[in-house]
Design a protein around this nucleic acid. Sequence first.
DNA 1: CAGTCGCCTGGGAGCGCTCCCAGTTTTAGG
DNA 2: CCTAAAACTGGGAGCGCTCCCAGGCGACTG
Lengths: 340, 340
Amino acid sequence: MDNSRRNLTLEEIGRIAGVSRSTVSRVVNDLPNVRPEIRTLVQSTIEKTGYLPNQAARALASRRTGLIGLVMPTGVDELFGDPYYSALVHGIQEGCSEVGSVFSIFPVYEKQGQTTVLSTLVAQGFVDGVIATAGQRSDDLISALRDRGTNVVVVGHPADSRNIRRVDVENRIGSAMAIEHLIGAGRERIAFLGPTAAHIYGTERLDGYRQALDSAGRTIEAGLIELQEPTVEGGYRGLVALLRHRPDAVHVATDTMALGALQALRDQGRTVPDDVAVVGFDGLPAALETSPSLTTIVQPVSDVGRTAVHLLLDDERASDVVILPTRLRLGASCGVSNPV
Amino acid sequence: MDNSRRNLTLEEIGRIAGVSRSTVSRVVNDLPNVRPEIRTLVQSTIEKTGYLPNQAARALASRRTGLIGLVMPTGVDELFGDPYYSALVHGIQEGCSEVGSVFSIFPVYEKQGQTTVLSTLVAQGFVDGVIATAGQRSDDLISALRDRGTNVVVVGHPADSRNIRRVDVENRIGSAMAIEHLIGAGRERIAFLGPTAAHIYGTERLDGYRQALDSAGRTIEAGLIELQEPTVEGGYRGLVALLRHRPDAVHVATDTMALGALQALRDQGRTVPDDVAVVGFDGLPAALETSPSLTTIVQPVSDVGRTAVHLLLDDERASDVVILPTRLRLGASCGVSNPV
DNA sequence: CAGTCGCCTGGGAGCGCTCCCAGTTTTAGG
DNA sequence: CCTAAAACTGGGAGCGCTCCCAGGCGACTG
C-alpha cells in the first residue's frame, strides 16, 4: 500500500489501470457491466494505490452520504451511564451495518444556539438522516428538524408528533400486562409509581394501569398513584409516599425507579414480594441483578434502534409510526414462580 | 421561514436578492468586501428562505468539512459509564466550539473489518481529523490511520507512537509527586498498585514510583509492586495481595482501582489513612465521594480534549507531542491535613 | 482633471464524484 | 454469415460550492 499524502482520484486510477473513470466507479461501487478480468485489474490497482473515494464528492454527486446521526440533546453526562442509551446505540449500530451506513453520535450541548448549530450541520449534506430521542429537552429540536425538512426519525413520543416518523414501544399495553399479572397473582391494592407528566411514556404507562384496573372492574384510588422524577431517588421517595396507602403491589414504571423503590421497601422493613409485589418497566440489565430479581416489562430497545434506521432510510414510507411490542419477564419480585 | 423540501443554492439566493453567487457566498461566510446594505439584504433573504449551505459541496470545494471525529474502538458498553470518557468528550466539545468545528463520536465495534470500514469513512472527506484514544484495542487502528495519511491526534500513548501527534499527561511526574508526598508524610513502606504492563500509562506511573523512591534513597521492594487489571475488582485483588508485605502506604495508579483498594482495606479491617495511606491517580469525580475522600493525582482530562482539537487543526505543527501537567489534590486518605 | 488606489462585484474554473447516454464490442439467434 | 439484442465502455454534464481574477466604480492625490 502506498502511503502517499495526496489522494488519488477515480480518473487517475483509471489512467493507471488503462480504463475510464466510469469503469473504475463501477468497480468501486460494485455495479454490474464490467468484464471480470477488468474488474480484477482495477481492484488490484485500487489495492496497490490505497485509493479511497472522496466522500464529499460522492455526497455532492449522489445526494447521499451514507452517514446516519444520532443527536443527543441530553448532556453527555446523562448519556454516559444510562444503560438505555447503550442498548439503543447498539441497535442503531446493528441497523446501520445492515443497510451499509455509518453511524455517528452528535452530542449536543444546550449552550447558546446549539440547536441552531445542530440543525445547520444536520440539515444539509452531512448526514442522510437523523435519529433523535424524544424528551423534554429535545422536543424543540425535533420540531425544528422536521420544519427544516430534515430526514428524521424519533425514538419515543415527542410532545408534537405531527408529521414525524417515529418508533415507539407499547407502553400502554405493557403496563396493562403488568397490572393484569399482579391481579392474576391475587394482589388487591395495586399502586402505580411513575415519572412526572412531562414524560409522555409515563403518561401512557399510567393509562395502561388505569385501563387494566378498569377492565378488571376495580376502582382506581388516587392515593395509590405517585409520580416522581424518573431516577433512583425518585423511586425511593415515591415508594415511601405510597406506603401510607398500604399497597400490596406496585407497578414501578421505570426500572431505574424500581431500583430506588426496592431499596425503600428494604429500608422500611417490607419484604418483596410477600408484603409488596413489584413489577418494573424497561428490562434494563440492572433489573436482573436486584434481590429479589425484578419482574419487569421488557421493551426491545435494541430492535427500536434497528427499526429506526430502517424507517429512516425507507423511501416507500411504508408506515410513519412503528410501535414495537413489550413483554413480561418474570423475576422473583412479583411472587409468581418462574415459568416452565 | 419557508419549509420547502428542496434546498436552495447560492445561485438562487443571489437571483432572489439580485446579486451574484459570489456575493452571497461572502455573506454566508462572513467575508469582507460586501457593502453593508447589500449584506443586510442578502442576510434577510437567507433568513426568509431558510437557506442552508450544502456541506458536501462546501467540503468538496474547500477540502474542509468542519467535522472532527472521536473514534472509540472500545465498545460502547465501556464508553457508557466511564467518567474519564465523559470528561474527555466535554473537553473535545469545548475545543471544537472554540475553533468552530462540529464534533461527532464514531463508535467502532470490533466485528469483521470494522477497522477497514472506519478508516474508509474517516480517511476521505468525512472529517477534517480524528481524535483517538490509545489503548490495546485501538493501537492497530491508530497505526492504520497514520499510514493512510489521516489527520489524527492520539490521546495517551499508543504502542507505536512514531510519527503520531499526541496529547498526554505527566504520568511519571504525577506518580513521583504521589510518592514524594507519601514520603513527606512519613510513610516507610510505600507500595505501588497499578495496571498490567499492557497499559503504557501504567508503566510510566510505575517509573515515577521507582524514580521517586530512588531519589529518596529508598530501596525498591518487588513485593510492594502489584499489577492488576485497571478495574475496581483488580484494585481489590491487588490490595489484598499487597497486604502480605505490610505496606503503610500505597499509590494506586488509577482511581478506579483505588475504589476497589479502599474497599479491600475496609474489608480487611485496616483504617485509612492510619494503617495504610492511599494516593490515587486520575482525579475522577468518584474520588471525591469515597470515605475517606481520596487524595489523588489529578490529570486535566478536559484540557487534554481541548488541546487535542487544537493540535489537530494546527497547521503550523508547533509541536507534535503535548504533555500536560498533573497535580496533587489532597483528600483525607493520605493522612495529611488539607492545605490552607 | 487625469491617474492611482482601494473597495466591491461578477463570473470562470474547478473540487471528484455519479448519472446517463451514445457508442462499441460481444453474444446469441436465425 | 448476418442481424438483433445484450453486455460493456467512455465521456459529457452536472452536483453546489470556493477560490481567484478581471473589471467597475468612487475617492483621493497631485
